[in-house]
Amino acid sequence: MTDHVTLTHLQRLEAEAIHIMREVVAEAEKPVMLYSVGKDSAVMLHLARKAFYPSPPPFPLLHVDTTWKFQAMYALRNEMAETSGMELLVYQNPEAKERGINPFDHGSLHTDMWKTEGLKQALDLHGFDAAFGGARRDEEKSRAKERVFSFRTASHGWDPKNQRPELWNLYNARKKKGESIRVFPISNWTELDVWQYIHLENIPIVPLYFAEKRPTVERDGMLLMVDDERFPLAEGEEPVMRSIRFRTLGCYPLTGAVESEAATLPEVIQETLLTTTSERQGRAIDKDEGGAGMEKKKQEGYF
């Protein structure tokens, strides 16, 4: 017993995520995986396929759609559902649809209605009692304190002061009818870990993460990509072709691009490591409500 196998940090993180997913499947009645098509979702889906191999993951993928995702995201979403052999559920909040809520005219109401409300409605509609999410603790301060199994009341509220203690790898998945848990299998991964794992495992991601010449306009210091004809151009505004890529993907007019020449994964990682602004800066959501923006949104039920 002298030769020890040294597990790398990625192997340990992978084993932990797989263990978490299996616990949920064993203990929850009706789990679902929230799939946003971003790189964290890509990693999570890949881990799910590993966890249950040779079975397909025994739960559906749920995309809470805002209708404002990049076209390339919809393409990859459909492709991945097919490859993984999982059922893909797409939910669009009918009220938001009816009222024509969009990011150009409605600001933060867009996120509230399509994402926060849409998610609650979708979970209630299908009666899911456990939902996997790809959030990581290194993303944002309030997430650093969230549990892996994060309990939600019947109205989807999160009470940061009343979280269940989480010891060893023993997760308490018990809940009353109507209550649910959000589960974050990649809680302990950093952005670098995610990139490294995508590189190592050859995981397909949306091409928008790689630099390419794309039509853009500049607004309020953010570079926005003109993804389709719905993008309202101001008077005299002309899309300019720039070599850009995205560090994070959300709704296309809310997500800023960065000018970049990084066209391969190692180059993207290189740029990420050498860069001087943090990942979520390209998103407007964290800046609301002073420093407590995300914490407040989470209490209201945002993922």
Partner: peptide, 16 residues
């Protein structure tokens, strides 16, 4: 900056 591939292979072998 100089050799991202070497860096990645180092990072890949880190322990936790």
């Amino acid at each position: 900056a100089e050799d991202i591939d070497t860096y990645l292979s180092t990072h890949q072998h880190k322990t936790m």
